[in-house]
Write a protein that binds this DNA or RNA. Sequence first.
DNA 1: GTTAGTTCTGTTTTT
DNA 2: CAGAACTAAC
Length: 676
Amino acid sequence: MDMELELGRLNPAQREAVMSTEGPLLVLAGAGSGKTRVITMRAAYIIHLGVPAGSIVAVTFTNKAAREMKERVGRMLETKKKPPIVSTFHSLCLNILRREIETLGYRRDFTVYDTAEQVSLLRHLLSDIRVYEKSFKPDDVLATISRIKNEFNKKTVRSESGEFDVEAFSETVFPRYQETMRSLNVVDFDDLLLLAVRLFREHPDVLERYRERFRYLMIDEYQDTNKIQYDFIRLLAGERKNICVVGDDDQSIYGWRGANLRNILDFESHFPGARVVRLEQNYRSFGNILKAANGVIKNNKKRMEKSLRTSRGDGAKVCLYRAEDGEDEAQWVAGTISRIKYEKKIPYDDFAIIYRANTLSKPFEEALRAVRIPYTVVGGTSYFERKEIKDLASYLKAIANPSDDLSFLRASSAPKRGIGATTTGKLAGLAKTHSISLYEAFGRAGEVEGVGEKAARAAAGFAALLDKYRKRFFNGSGQMGKAFRELSEEIGFNGYIGELYKSQEMALRRMENVENFIESLSRYEMAADKPTLQGFLEELALDGPPEEKKDENKNFGVVLTTFHSAKGLEFPVVFIACLEEDILPHKKSALPGEGIEEERRLFYVGITRAMRELYLTCAGSRVRYGKFVPSTPSRFLEELPAGVVRKIGRLEPESPAEEELRAKAFFARINEMLGE
DNA sequence: GTTAGTTCTGTTTTT
DNA sequence: CAGAACTAAC
């Protein structure tokens, strides 16, 4: 790549950001200001200056962002050049811990628990401590545990929602949780950061090694960092402080998850002498959209002053439609999409509908389906789709980490193999008295009094089964995929799936998932430099089960999404729906100050997704919890600057020209449907 | 150890 | 209203 030429293509602010390679740097990157371009080019530029790629670390929040950045830096570098390290916080920490955790007295072969496993562990734990059963809700407890770990602070213990006994939590539940995790040789997501920070704090020699190694740090989405992530970064930055953070305080929408807006607002005092570069040139949206965004966001007090500019013209006005009710709103959106699609001849995936909560998607799905417009709903939890994966993964986890009793237990009864609660209870007793793992206890089932011969044989047989496969997974033959498939066959996993799901169709779908999962181990084995079972499980924990090879950047049809999942995306035509009090400033977040400002930022994020056209809708009433409830328009709508908005509604009908277009679109659709 | 009936509860989500 | 989580009875 011709660096001079590439630099010449940047605007002055972007160029300054790219070329300020030494010392602390804050890049305030407004929406659509070419942020990713700047980060990627900055990495390439530092390499171009002769810095070894391995000493540059770019940290992101999501794997998707990491993949994208890796890909873009790769394209920018000469093919033979090594790429910089691009990683999420969690996987960077995991990689460090995988090498260093023994320094902290942990075993090297630890595994990572995901949220579902945390909950499951907690359930076991809470039922052990019977007294508290009712008041301790796993989600609530987990949220508290997470906050303690992320804020590095035991003083802030409080029950998140439902009240539980704070003292009992601190005295019993939390210590028990930690002890159990430790004895199972597992860590949770928060531990990855927490232990890395502890490692650095308690072992300055180790920290020094990493400071020497990671000489240039770049942090993306800095407005979303929390306390512990800040500590981690700060420790790594050391005295050299070659740290570049990129973010937009106006797009901080994860405060409720512990993100600390102060990190970005106070960057200059955290890192004295920091250079600040503002990217305010927007390359995404037309003027009226940007004016709307600016007009709204300027009502926030806690922010860094900046104002987005565009070199494009004003473009179309922002449209505001006040619908009768939710159904009317959805139909209007669907109808308008049809019309624009016909008028502009653009594909359906140029459209997005954005709303506050996943539960609001329904009416839009129905309305779109009614007129045969294809769509994809982003997000929404689909974890129930993965029981079969979790079951099978528990075998791998039990094999990789013999101390992981929970995975062992799960595997031992999926499918059922004649080891019931009674037997398990007795063996767990043995494990406890001898301080051994459940796996070892199963192996010695014959010795235990009160365990019938049949049950003992089944238990010992199961332990032996895992033993057999453990050898195959660790013999370094590169045949893990094959071993996994044989394991699945030996335990009759497909038969188990077949029984588990009533409909043939459902079962078949699950079996496909299983097949794909097994295949993904083979794929991993082929792709990785040095494939290990641990490595595969790490990818699984941090990146989720590999879905069928879908194109990440390709949508199918109109995109329906929440504000949160829309962040970072852009669409030519955007509809922001359900803009009503109690929904957009959400009832539970509308607390003055912090709360309301974050809600406003959500709106801002939504508006700035739009490139050419923006439609805002609200309804006069809507079905909520089965009842018709009157709705009032969101207070944020009043913040839209005069002159950029055009109102449409029952009382203010569309222009005849528009109605004609709508009619034409209608007939075009019918013809299209007939043609199919 | 499962399944049908009942009650409860309704943001945002990544790793 | 609808889905989850819980309870009571096979």
